[in-house]
Design a protein around this nucleic acid. Structure first.
Lengths: 210, 210
DNA sequence: CTGTAATCCACATATTTATGTGATTGAATT
DNA sequence: AATTCAATCACATAAATATGTGGATTACAG
């Protein structure tokens, strides 16, 4: 038996969802609310397995509710339920630990399937949402694993540079002469094709050397 | 009619997939190969709508094949097909523009559904994969949109700093005196709680101010 | 065996940065 | 009207950084 809470401001939809889900075998709607203004307590009181969370609600909305819940509870499955497959909302929801993101136009049978999936650790997403998620992934810029052929020692020096250490401090940290630090740094600049500390730091970040 | 290419090293599975898909209404398997060693040409020759791509293949494997294809073709839908829902492979595939990621244990009916979904711009994923994708999302660390109350002018100066410009150059770029640049920078350091150019640059990157 | 590369150190000098102390103007707020 | 703050500029000094030239050692590959 999957126990649910529903957060949805529209009274008709709230009633409709409750009837649909509560009337289905294996599902039980514990309660339904019109916003998240008391969500923390409600979760603690009802101990649901799954939460259907509308995003667009007056008062404390679904994204805020999601964050509030996740501050103390990482177990309960939260299924975002919304009209729009809006880029920004999807992103924010998934960033904050939502377990799924489905559109309200989802047919009833499919909805029950999605709830089931969420409760068993899945990540149900409407197709259009999944597509956007993948696009976001492809746009992430990650370790471009460029090498620049930095030697171990040079990488080590670069680490300290990035932390804002002066030559003198680096020399002390690495137990070598300041002049040696200098020659390492010179070599680093050559290899990175830069000619100042801050450029080296910037490049280290950009190319994820650090 | 959805036109497919299949890349799969196991002869039995390759045959099986071809028969299943080609024998289904609305699907046509143009060809099937045992690895990606000639993938660029094959794509150009056959102009498929969807590619089923095994990851584990001898010679040029599926991930390499994916990258090769995406160098010249961002249109064709590529569905990764593999035995393991391995974190690293999922990540790399999605990073490189795969349109879906499904496990080989997927039942035939579901597989056809997935292919259909991919061809219409969806992003079919096995539940366990979708779950991992969401987890990765939640672990991403993003613009912590910290403010630091930098004024417009200060932000502008910071941009130049990050680009490695010297005070003198910044002064020239911004048509102000070097001393003014200095006072801006001093203020920036105060606000960011740092005390050197490279630290400021590092912080700008870390906190995504730039 | 020889060349190459990484690591280490030194001395000299020019440029750049950091720090301090002031000051003026104008716009926005109280 | 008084205050605050961003933005502008100035002068001075100390510290850090960049650049050049040069040399020593070790280790490893061809």
């Amino acid at each position: 038996m999957i126990k649910l809470l529903i957060y949805e401001d529209n009274p008709q939809l709230r009633e409709g969802l409750t009837m649909l889900i509560d009337g289905s075998e294996g599902f039980s709607v514990l309660a339904a609310f019109k916003n998240c203004s008391n969500v923390a307590n409600e979760i603690k009181t009802y101990q649901p397995d799954v939460i259907l969370m509308d995003i667009d609600m007056p008062g404390v909305n679904g994204l805020q509710g999601l964050k509030i819940i996740r501050e103390t509870n990482t177990e309960v499955k939260i299924l975002m339920l919304t009209v729009f497959d809006d880029h920004q909302n999807i992103f924010e929801a998934l960033q904050n630990g939502a377990n799924g993101y489905i559109l309200k136009k989802t047919p009833p049978a499919k909805l029950l399937e999605y709830i089931e999936e969420a409760s068993t650790g899945g990540a149900p997403m409407t197709a259009s949402v999944a597509t956007q998620v993948l696009k976001m992934f492809a746009q992430l810029n990650l370790p471009s694993d460029k090498d620049y052929n930095l030697s171990e020692r040079e990488k080590e020096v670069l680490q300290w540079l990035v932390k804002g250490y002066s030559y003198k401090m680096i020399a002390a940290e690495m137990f070598i002469a300041m002049d040696t630090v200098r020659s390492h740094i010179k070599k680093i600049y050559e290899k990175l094709h830069v000619n100042s500390k801050s450029e080296a730091v910037a490049k280290a970040f950009r190319d994820k050397i650090v």
